[in-house]
Design a binder for these strands. Structure first.
Lengths: 379, 379
DNA sequence: GCGGGCACGTTGTACGTATAACGAGCGGCT
DNA sequence: AGCCGCTCGTTATACGTACAACGTGCCCGC
């Protein structure tokens, strides 16, 4: 009703049409709608322009704008898979700070089965100002950089790029401490076979935490990052349980693997946690859908997305020809009043420790102890 | 190595730079790279242009192209949630046929917590040629149509728009027949509270199938579409089990609900399927992650996405100023030889019955009988 | 009374591309 | 010989926007 679109739209009104309707020049329209008019256009005139834009249902032509300005105010988020709630959370966080800064965010799920050919983002045709990519979604970092676009990596140890990581090592130590405190002394690691920093760190940290504690890492089984993968690997890891040399706890690199481990235990006639404890990683929705619910690490995915987007904006800001971020939510003529203050989320929060002046952001993680862990069986 | 990008890139080469390097005019470059040169440019010249483009690492400026042509060869897919494998499948299918026709596909997960303000797709800033939307992701269809963009709806009964649907009614009848054949006579329906065509049909079809069969639909419990929702609703539905008037089978509108039902049964001390049978819908990955694995309906999500994209392309083709679909995979200068024939997927397959000349596509579904259903208990 | 600022706009141009319209050379047919 | 028609290009223009540069009154201070 109040929405002012022309229904039987002719060929979409341009800024010149608006100018004509408001009795000004096209340049003035551009100034007013671009929020660059303080002191250059009188308020009544500006209001006339806005009114004309509103009644005509004017919406700026993005292509023309990009052609002129050289940028698109659009970023790309590259993730390995859509179905993982973790990356959905990353997206949510990233899109929030993006749109708070007038940026769009496009999603590119890397392995869709489409051959990426030469162009990694062929299917996300949008012209881009920058890229945020999960290290799990890219094979070759060089290929990404080839575009010459500002780049932020997630879960990566790349040193020549801005990165956003979780404190995975600390998280793994929390898991280890939890199990050790429960009394476990023989632990197996159900590990992802994905060759990524975030999994390499898991292995190192677990080994490190177990090392000087009187406990032992009795097995490590690698597998594909999926429930069936976890089922297979956990089945191998559980051979000989209960037994003197067999593990009493399974530390899994991911909730998917832990869910598979639960199935493996059940098929082997083992109870969780009475016969064997299981831990996950990520706190996916799946962690609470299975029985028993998984002890796991909560990684604040949205924070990672938000931090990634902020890092990208910072990168953009210090480029030569680029436009610094602005809070102005684009030129779409919308009623100027928003309900509450826009408030870029988290913009001044404490928890995320950022290496001052550096290019790496590290986010804390927290352990959630649930029903899948308990004391080891007493033989 | 063979990838010909300029590393210390200056301000990106334009078609004019290519023209200069090849000793031709800019128009000729445009013709050659746009595949419009048959009979207008001699082969040696064309090759010279291609070579120049390659060594310069030329990539056409999308903004300029869109400004000139008026379209973007980009479509938008609007889905309710990213984490649902079903919609991930839809995306995969859609992106496959899109890129086979030289189109890009951008994803917009509707409820990201961002207020859509006036513009439904503010965060997917890309300029669009058309939209494919799941009816579950949009509140008001009119708002979608307001953009004036070609529109295809998924899972919808909208009559004034092209639609792609599954044969939900037939699917529900298959479920009912399966349970009736096992001997169930008292059935409860764990239904989604989402007000959408696809769920309304489920209810009607289940009621219809149970009606003349000697069995009864003893309860219907509605809830939010999630595992906890299913847990709550199923707990209500299972009151009094086992008992003379209580259901022996739970038909759930979605695998998420069925997973919740499994948890509910376990908490009530009921075994599945010995005490109560449970069925799902969608065949999500979750269906096989839980124990016992779910009897469910397989909906070929990728087919739906592919059909949706094809419907959109058809829509686009019969618009006045628009470019018909073309198999030419854009102008990116890539080695002309592909390994195998491109072969638009499924393009001539039988299973999807399409109302000839109509605007609705209906896709078949198949029942997967797994461990969560069995004969009812014999009292 | 006159130069100088200020407030308010406007004119002009460029971004990189696609395509319509227009040749120029040349061989063959009548 | 004349001229059509074909091949192989070129020139010119428009898409819609942002912004640099340039007026034009008008008031103010000296």
């Amino acid at each position: 009703m109040a929405v002012p679109q022309r229904d039987a739209a002719g060929p979409r009104p341009t800024s010149r049409d608006v100018a004509h309707a408001a009795g000004v020049s096209q340049a003035t329209v551009s100034l007013v709608l671009g929020d660059k008019w303080r002191g250059r256009v009188a308020e009544p005139t500006a209001e006339r322009v806005r009114a004309a834009a509103r009644t005509l249902g004017y919406r700026p032509n993005l292509a023309a704008r990009s052609l002129r300005t050289g940028h698109t105010r659009t970023a790309l988020l590259v993730v390995p898979a859509l179905t993982n709630d973790f990356f959905a959370g990353v997206y949510t966080g990233a899109v929030e700070v993006a749109s708070a800064h007038g940026f769009g965010l496009v999603l590119y799920p890397s392995p869709t089965g489409i051959a990426p050919a030469r162009d990694p983002f062929a299917s996300a045709r949008a012209a881009l100002d920058g890229v945020i990519a999960s290290s799990m979604a890219v094979e070759s970092l060089a290929e990404l950089r080839a575009g010459g676009l500002p780049l932020v990596m997630l879960d990566s140890d790349a040193s020549d790029t801005a990165t956003v990581n979780f404190d995975i090592a600390d998280g793994m130590r929390q898991v280890a401490r939890h199990l050790l405190a429960l009394g476990h002394r023989r632990i197996a690691h159900v590990a992802s076979a994905v060759d990524s920093w975030t999994f390499a760190v898991r292995a190192r940290a677990l080994a490190g935490a177990v090392a000087g504690s009187g406990a032992r890492l009795v097995r490590t089984e690698r597998c594909e990052l999926s429930v069936p993968g976890g089922l297979a690997a956990a089945t191998r890891a559980l051979a000989g349980v209960p037994g003197p040399d067999a593990p009493t706890a399974l530390v899994c690199d991911d909730d998917l693997l832990a869910a598979g481990a639960l199935k493996a235990a059940r098929r082997l006639g083992l109870r969780v946690p009475e016969d064997v404890s299981v831990t996950g990683f990520d706190d996916l929705a799946l962690a609470r859908a299975v029985e028993p619910e998984l002890t796991t690490l909560r990684l604040p995915a949205a924070d990672m997305g938000a931090a990634g987007m902020r890092a990208l904006l910072a990168e953009l800001a210090e480029r030569p020809g680029s436009s610094g971020p602005s809070a102005a939510p684009a030129a779409t003529p919308t009623a100027a009043s928003a309900s509450s203050a826009p408030s870029a989320p988290h913009d001044a929060e404490a928890p995320e420790s950022e290496k001052e002046g550096g290019r790496e952001t590290v986010l804390p993680v927290t352990l959630l102890a649930r029903a899948s862990t308990g004391p080891p069986p007493t033989p």
